[in-house]
Design a binder for these strands. Structure first.
Lengths: 219, 219
DNA sequence: TGTACATCAGTGAACGCGCGTTCACTGATGTAC
DNA sequence: TGTACATCAGTGAACGCGCGTTCACTGATGTAC
């Protein structure tokens, strides 16, 4: 996956762009960041990539095809960021779990354009099954982390993994999309979204009985 | 707030529409429901309302003005639905609280167009302060319910109202926007969103210590 | 190593279309007297 | 009760614009022999 054959400032590109797909994605992301998930057109992305309006048709069926590719790459990036945050559950599951939540928010803040392409672009998952699959792989990082955390619990108190994973997803997603996103739709609150999520997850884990009572700090 | 002076099937309307604002909103909502929050144009809404493309300018500055009015009405409806669900905390705070959560999901499912206009239209709250205010009134229903629930707790265990309200909002909103919305962006899960939210909130309340241990059913 | 050829990935001109917006206008309604 | 007039809420024609999409084309690249 190389950039322009002859990249670098001041270089001339020839008849072939060399990396139009990536250039279109990059252009679309910048436009989304400026104007929201509906804020770009096929022609505009082509113009921003320095290419004729017909060129994108060599790579994408239509605007939705480009959008789906963006969402796909978004979920892939998301998966790797979440995996890195979880880091195999080291040094212990609870610490890593907290990092995972912060990783979710960090992504929403750092990549608002990807975030809205993934969750708010209105793409049909049926039309783009590979996007759905990529989304599931991201979810699996959360689910595996929940499974690891559940492993540390006494057997008779263990909740269903799927339920807990969906709960944690909804919590992180709720905070991210209401308070932590890096765009104009963020609602201001008098505390950091990270602290808010941390507190919520800790209370939730207490409710599950993950932490021993003796470990609970006074609230 | 009347409908057409001469409403009813087969009736003729005169030169004046009589209720163009409401007709435009209704048309826009139908278009949003079909094609997402970006899925209508000013001209299209006018056409759907049976009026010339210049007519909407008598009522709205531009498309965003109409969108903001939709979001405003959405928040007002949302507020009254949530209030009705809470119903003054009767017969007891916990029961009413559960109803409140279900009310949140019911709104997302029944009014996906309003929901996305309110939360995903990309409107700037700074440009439309009355929309922000209406959103805050909806939030206040949640906050007041949390305050009432906190009242039932022993004094030394009471969490900050604002924190709890934001937690509950994020939980309900996360479930609603991921799993309960009434449009194509809903993700299928192997249980009802209502049960999922109920379980999450109960676990969260357990974590807070709202319920006595003796009352906890075996998980 | 050279050459012929297939394929790939662009061009640029063209088209029909619908949108946003404006304008002078006009029909309908409300009100002062 | 009638009349004159101000105001409101529409019309419809017009405009420039950018979009999506197509088409025949062509420059660049890869490969078989």
């Amino acid at each position: 996956m190389s950039w322009h054959r002859d990249s670098g400032p001041g270089s001339r590109r020839g008849y072939h762009h060399g990396n139009l797909r990536e250039a279109l994605i990059k252009a679309a992301l910048e436009l989304i960041a400026q104007k929201g998930p509906a804020g770009f057109t096929f022609a505009e992305a082509a113009r921003a990539a320095g290419v004729s309006p017909a060129a994108p048709y060599r790579h994408y069926r239509d605007r939705d095809g480009l959008m789906a590719d963006i969402a796909l790459k978004g979920f892939e990036t998301f998966t790797s960021r979440l995996s890195a945050a979880w880091n195999g559950g080291k040094p212990d599951a609870q610490t890593a779990f907290e990092r995972l939540g912060r990783g979710y928010l960090a992504f929403a803040r750092a990549e608002p354009a990807l975030f809205s392409a993934m969750f708010e672009s209105g793409l049909s998952f049926d039309a783009f099954p590979d996007v759905r699959d990529a989304g599931e792989r991201a979810f699996n990082v959360l689910r595996d982390a929940c499974a690891a955390l559940i492993e540390t619990m006494p057997e008779e108190k263990r909740p269903p993994v799927m339920m807990m994973a969906l709960h944690v997803w909804a919590q992180a997603h709720g905070i991210a999309s209401l308070f932590a996103r890096g765009d104009a739709a963020r609602r201001p609150i008098p505390m950091s979204p990270e602290d808010l999520l941390d507190a919520m997850v800790l209370i939730y884990l207490d409710g599950l009985g993950v932490r021993e009572k003796s470990n609970r700090p006074p609230s």
